[in-house]
């Protein structure tokens, strides 16, 4: 269980980006984290994987625990070794290295098993095997996304954090990515799926969180989130059209605006 409790993150000592976020990623589950741009989704992932430092961010309150052991404040390498890997937003593959070298770097903390893991990843992504000698920067967007996911899998993570894997991909590729996520999960890896594509994320997740300006405003099983009016209107783009009513302002209707979550 990867557990976040009342997490506060501040950038540059002044910018409060996460204000008491709590979230659970049970082992073996798929959990969706939705939210608009700037809600703090990526910051949360940075806090989970020790990358806040790079951006001058720091955890000021709360905790991140992995199987009841505190992991926030650890170095990224230590967190990867404990089984938490992240696929960063925008894929961030090593453009100048070959596909296989990219994967090998992914196995940096897992040096003993690189050969086995390579076979495993090539099994999941046959297209990467075809292009193993190619320079990664020349792959198509979908292939790059698969490379980024394959690279993270090289470390044999028990928890995989995916930051917008559908970003900039054609609908058909989004479907493919979704199937791969399900497959990865079936093989025993818990997935935290950060998405703007709420329909895709909620279709495979068991539980979902909605993050808004640094707070979790909704926290429900995925099927109930899918049925939630606000989520339907603002994340799935359905509500207003269904009822035939005029488009409403986000501010007027958010029922959760007044809901205080001092403790979770």
């Amino acid at each position: 269980m990867l557990r976040v409790r009342n997490l506060e993150v501040v950038y540059d000592d002044v910018m409060l980006v996460l204000r008491g976020v709590s979230l659970d990623l049970p082992s073996g589950a798929i959990v969706a984290l939705l939210g608009a741009n700037g809600a703090g989704k990526t910051t949360l992932l940075r806090a989970l994987t020790g990358l806040l430092d790079v951006h001058d961010g720091a955890v000021t309150k709360g905790s991140v625990t992995l199987d009841d052991q505190q992991v926030h404040g650890l170095r990224p390498a230590a967190i990867v070794r404990r089984g938490v890997s992240q696929v960063m937003e925008g894929r961030r593959i090593f453009a100048e290295l070959s596909v296989e070298d990219n994967l090998r770097v992914g196995g940096h903390t897992n040096a003993g098993a690189v050969g086995d893991r390579l076979d495993h990843v090539y099994g999941l992504f046959p297209v990467l095997k075809e292009r193993r000698r190619k320079t990664a920067g020349y792959l198509s967007g979908g292939e790059q996304q698969m490379l980024a996911m394959g690279r993270a899998l090289m470390a044999e993570p028990r928890y995989l954090l995916l930051d917008e894997p559908s970003l900039g991909l054609a609908p058909r590729l989004v479907d493919q990515v979704r199937e791969i996520i399900v497959e990865i999960n079936r093989l025993g890896t818990a997935v935290l799926l950060v998405e703007q594509n709420a329909a895709m994320a909620l279709s495979i997740a068991s539980h979902g969180y909605v993050l808004e300006t640094g707070k979790v405003v909704l926290d429900k099983p995925a099927d109930r989130l899918l049925a939630d009016d606000d989520v339907r209107e603002f994340y799935l783009g359905l509500g207003a059209a269904d009822t035939g009513a005029a488009r409403r302002s986000f501010r007027d209707v958010k029922h959760y605006k007044r809901r205080k979550r001092w403790l979770s």
Binding site: T49, V54, A77, I79, R92, D101, V105, H108, A152
Partner: peptide, 23 residues
């Protein structure tokens, strides 16, 4: 070598290398 590869990766994208567990 593993470390040589890590150095090339870090030269390419430092944060991404960190995320892979490269020190």
């Amino acid at each position: 070598t593993r470390m040589g590869l890590a150095m090339r990766a870090a030269a390419d994208d430092q944060e991404a290398a960190l995320a892979q567990g490269v020190s």
